[in-house]
Nucleic acid binder design. Structure first.
Length: 495
DNA sequence: CTTAGGG
DNA sequence: CCCTAAG
């Protein structure tokens, strides 16, 4: 990145135009550009993974014409990538995040009056926009840059984090503003509003039923392309920043028709809400409060992935794990936070409390407490293996976060643990000690008993061998295939 | 919807 | 924990 800054502007621009034009996929070029922005995000010394980093970058390089130009270009490329991001989400995951932030910045910063202004001006400014020559203005970018930052501040008063993201584009628009009064401001508003419109108009349900809530799909690409003012605006922006007239927006359209997977859509939407939270937290400079650890780790991972020399084109395919969202069941999210009122023991609060705020899609990882295990074993001994729903309904009513599947999984783990412990008893104790949760011997015995009695599918094989090893093997092995789990469960009630 | 099984 | 297939 730093090298990029020192690059000869002519060379850079040439590369920019050339790459964009030649590459069909368009992705390599934008990757290269976007990566810079990501590095900007990674680079800031504070741990905020946010657009504050970009802001910081801006301030730092204020007055350097080419730097800010590159940055702007990066942003714009990023935006474009996001339009077609559905096909590249595997490799551009982190980038999409970034772009999302930028787009969020757009959405957040556009006020209603902006919309009004645009509406009123749309007809009039169209011709102007068509003829507007940014290339001329670009020369003034260098000297005009310092004062535009203030103007952009006024333009987006609220969120510092998001507004800085907008600054990447709107700021550059303001450059021309210095020269040509507020006309370019209209353009800016218009662009933003069009972006927003693209989001708003985006039908949640497309014809094939895809729920593309927060993604711009090909329809909107078409819309963008068919919208002369907007397309021209974008093109004009591009010209201004790259001095390249030939950068056509239509280039990257081929690969975009692949419809995004449901999972991607969900993650994307979820990610967006997450970004909002992040932005809000960033605004108050208190991001460290929430999920600081995770961000730190993510940053570490990202840094680890990105080698030291991060400026070269070789890093284009680095997929940042940053802000990667885990999946989870939405239905569980509401009941995540209420604590189980179980009175039995006092250990029920052993849930992992660290990410209680963020609505991660992944279910909270709640440690199984001893009481829960006991209850589970009781339930199994009472109702039998396989009747997880019953057990959950009758014994785990208080802890609503335990789904029947959880019970089954836990039982599976218990069986595994018991069998493992049966293999070598003395090491059992050893293991118990160095594992934080001892799993008392009584429970273990019960699990073992039940394991002998209720052959869990697929587990029983290994378990049975274990059982035979341990000793009391002469028990129920006969029921392997013959007895259904239901029958076994019903007839077996001793313990 | 529930369970089983694999990841 | 999550996902998916199968009843």
């Amino acid at each position: 990145m730093r090298k990029r800054h020192e690059m000869d502007p002519e060379e850079y621009l040439w590369k920019c135009s050339n790459t964009v034009q030649v590459d069909e996929s368009f992705v390599p070029a934008i990757q290269d550009e976007v990566m810079k922005v990501e590095h900007l995000l990674v680079e800031p010394r504070n741990d905020l993974v946010s657009l504050d980093g970009v802001l910081y970058f801006h301030e730092e390089n204020l007055g350097k014409c080419y730097d800010s130009e590159n940055l702007s270009s990066g942003f714009e490329f990023g935006l474009k990538t996001s339009f077609g991001g559905s096909d590249s989400h595997t490799t551009l995951n982190g980038k999409d995040d970034l772009k999302l932030e930028v787009l969020d910045g757009f959405l957040d910063d556009v006020e209603i009056d902006d919309l009004k202004v645009t509406d009123g001006f749309s007809g009039a400014c169209e011709d102007y926009l068509l003829d507007f020559e940014f290339s001329d203005k670009a020369v003034s970018l260098c000297e005009e840059l310092p004062l535009q930052s203030s103007s952009s501040e006024s333009h987006s008063p609220g969120l510092s984090g998001s507004s800085s993201g907008v600054g990447g584009v709107s700021e550059s628009s303001k450059v021309a503003n210095a020269q040509s009064e507020n006309k370019n401001d209209f353009l800016d508003n218009r662009v933003i509003c069009n972006f927003r419109g693209a989001f708003r108009d985006n039908p949640c349900q497309t014809s094939n039923g895809n729920c593309i809530s927060n993604t711009l799909d090909i329809q909107h690409l078409d819309k963008l392309d068919n919208d002369p003012p907007l397309a021209d605006s974008i093109l004009s922006h591009k010209r201004k920043k790259c001095f390249v007239e030939k950068c056509q927006i239509a280039a990257p359209r081929e690969k975009r028709f692949r419809k995004p997977t449901q999972r991607y859509i969900e993650e994307f939407s979820n990610l967006r809400s997450k970004e909002k939270i992040l932005a809000a937290a960033t605004k108050h400079k208190h991001l460290s409060v929430m999920s600081n650890n995770e961000h730190h780790h993510m940053r570490l991972r990202a840094l680890r992935k990105i080698p030291g020399k991060n400026s070269d084109s070789g890093t284009s395919d680095v997929a940042l794990p940053e802000l990667q969202v885990h999946k989870g069941r939405l239905k569980n999210e509401e009941i995540e936070y209420d604590e189980e009122p179980i009175s039995s023991e006092s250990e029920d609060e052993c849930v992992t409390p660290k990410r209680s705020i963020k609505n991660d899609r992944r279910k909270q990882q709640r440690m199984w407490t001893l009481s829960e295990v006991i209850k589970l074993v009781d339930g199994i001994s009472e109702y039998g293996v396989g009747r997880w729903t019953d057990i959950q309904r009758l014994l785990f009513t208080s802890s609503s976060y335990r789904t029947p599947i959880d019970l089954r999984d836990k039982w599976r783990n218990l069986l595994r643990a018991s069998s493992a412990q049966k293999l070598n008893n003395e090491e059992t104790e050893h293991k118990q000690e160095h594992t934080s949760r001892p799993l008392p011997i009584t429970v273990l015995r019960r699990v073992r008993e039940l394991a002998k009695i209720y052959p869990y599918p697929r587990e029983r094989c290994s378990k049975e061998s274990c059982v035979s090893q341990v000793g009391s093997s002469a028990l129920p092995t006969k029921n392997k295939g013959s007895l259904s789990k239901r029958n076994v469960g019903r007839k077996k009630c001793n313990i």
